[in-house]
Structure formats: C-alpha cells, structure tokens
C-alpha cells in the first residue's frame, strides 16, 4: 500500500504508545496515520464523534465540511458542539474542540456542505473519505468523486436505534450507487436518533478507517454491518457491486484492491495540494478507468 508516512516525535510516541502495542498497528501504522488526511462530510452526530476518534488516534489531517451554525437541537448528539457555541459556526466549533484534544492535527474547516460542485476538490485533498452526511445528494456527490479518484469511502448511517457501516473501495466493493441506485424518495433530513447510537456508528467507522490507513485487520469491505441497539444485535450482510452501475460500473476489479485501498499521498502530492478553494472544480482522475484488458 502506497501511503505517505511521517516520522513520530517523542511526544507522539508517548501519546500513542498504548495503541502502538496493538498487533498490526505498531509504529509503522502510527506513522501512516500521521501521514493521512481524511475528509469528513458533516461533523454532527456522526461526524463529530468520528472526528474525535480519528483525532485521538493521531490522524495527520482532517478536512471538515459542514455548513451552518450550531443549533439547540444539535446538542443531543453533536458532541463537538458546545452550548456556548450556539449560533456560531459548526466547523469552527469542531476545529476548536479537536485541537484541544490533539493540537498537532492539521485541520481545514470548510463551512460548506459537500455538493456536486465541490466534491471533486474536497475529495482530492484527502486520502480517505468518511460519509457522515444526512442528505443523499451529498453522499452521491462524494461517492462519485471517490470512485473517479480511486479513494475509499467509509459509509456510516443511523436511524432511531439502528445503524450501519460499510467500507467502500472503488472497483473492489459496491459503491454507494450500487447500494442505492436512486435517491430514496422517503428519506427525511430530520429523523429520530439517539446520540449514543450515532456515536456507535461513528466509532465503528473510525476503526474501519484506522485499519485501512494503518494496514491491518479486516475491514467491512463488501460487508454491511448492521446493528439494532434496541436489542443490541449485530448482523453482517454481504454486499456486492451492481452490474452496470452508472457510477462504478466501468471500473475493473483490479483497481482499488483492499490492500491498496487508500489513495496514494506522496510528499510531492501533499505539497502541491493547496488549501481548499471554494471555486476550484475537482478534476476526475483517469488512472482508474477500465483498461482495454477488462
């Protein structure tokens, strides 16, 4: 797996000592975490705790994309927000809280939701994407950009006391459009949810991303993990690519193997990537198009 790695400081070795004892993670995995940048779409009930876990695990950079200001009804689940922050920028609140935990974290706070217009650019800045968005149009935009750029996307969702997580790797697993070929007509932006339930999905998604970046363990690639916390049951459902998918159907299976699941981020690439420019358009990559041998 080609991924940018960064050397650890003595403080980082001390901070992450207990997790570096984990078989398969170790210092090498920790260096990979430090070298990785994740895009998190929305930092609310799902994205908030997820960012917290990524920050505490020592990820190198986070791009937080979330428009709007903190509202009272956010505070049952959006644990990066504060009562004092009511009426203020969500991403700025999230950034401040995350830096309190991990001041070494590189954070780009983007006060925009992901759209078809900015998805390419935002995904282009990251090695891995976490979909924590409540709106399917937003999720589809990220999905398409991830497929075009060969970036993995950890997909997390919840409703009431239920939740689900899966890891999407272009060309290897279904993409989001394989699972949902159209925008669900009945899905509403506001839905019943308990903060701890979304935090469950967030923690699972964080673990998935950490495993993928650090290169150990078995991910949920090709599996939808579903849980019902009313009775605390968990279920693994195999999911497959949909033939003829209009988003990922042109990808060969050889693209985006699980062990290469994270997009390459070489030092030269990182230096060329500037901060997110709201007017920049994402450029699709042609490196993962199906070759004539497919």
């Amino acid at each position: 797996m080609r991924i940018h790695t960064e050397a650890l400081t003595d403080e980082e070795r001390t901070t992450y000592e207990w997790q570096m004892w984990i078989d398969g993670l170790g210092e090498d995995g920790q260096r990979r975490l430090k070298g990785a940048t994740a895009l998190v779409s929305r930092c609310g009930g799902l994205g908030g705790p997820l960012c917290y876990h990524l920050a505490s695990a020592g990820i190198g950079g986070l791009i937080l994309a979330h428009a709007g200001v903190v509202q009272t009804a956010d505070l049952n689940r959006q644990i990066l927000m504060t009562h004092d922050g009511l009426g203020k920028s969500r991403v700025e609140s999230a950034k401040r809280r995350l830096l309190e935990l991990n001041p070494r974290l590189r954070i780009e706070a983007v006060p925009e939701n992901v759209t078809e217009d900015n998805a390419g650019a935002l995904v282009g800045l990251a090695d891995i994407v976490f979909d924590c968005a409540p709106v399917f149009a937003e999720r589809f935009a990220m999905n398409r950009a991830c497929v075009e750029q060969g970036k993995p996307m950890i997909e997390a969702a919840m409703f009431e006391m239920e939740g689900q997580v899966t890891t999407l790797i272009p060309g290897k697993t279904p993409c989001l459009a394989c699972l949902y070929p159209e925008e669900p007509p009945a899905w509403k932006r506001q839905f019943p949810v308990l903060g701890a339930v979304s935090a469950m999905a967030a923690a699972i998604a964080a673990v998935e991303g950490i495993k993928l970046i650090a290169g150990f363990g078995q991910t949920l690639a090709g599996t939808l993990l579903y849980y019902d916390s009313r009775n605390m049951t968990f279920q693994r459902i195999p999911v497959a690519r949909r033939p003829g998918c209009e988003v990922c159907g042109m990808l060969c299976d050889e693209v985006g193997r699980a062990e290469d699941g994270v997009g390459t981020t070489r030092q030269s690439d990182r230096q060329e990537r500037s901060a997110y420019m709201p007017t920049a358009a994402g450029r699709p990559s042609d490196t993962n198009r199906c070759r004539s041998s497919c």
Binding site: G45, L46, D131, R139, A157, W187, Q235, P238
Partner: peptide
C-alpha cells in the same frame, strides 16, 4: 432485501420457514 441472511431479489421464490429482512435506506447526520 435479505433472505436467510443473504441479499436477495424481489423475484426470489420463498420456501416454508424463510426469513425475509427488509431494509430501507438510511443516511447520517
């Protein structure tokens, strides 16, 4: 659609004792 633990299609013919799970799409937030 999940029948007996595996994804299925609407055209799947069922047998006595089958278990059918019906999931609707959910998102984050």
């Amino acid at each position: 659609l999940v029948v007996n633990g595996l994804p299925s299609t609407p055209e799947r013919m069922l047998r006595d004792g089958d278990s059918v799970q019906v999931f609707s799409p959910v998102a984050g937030g």
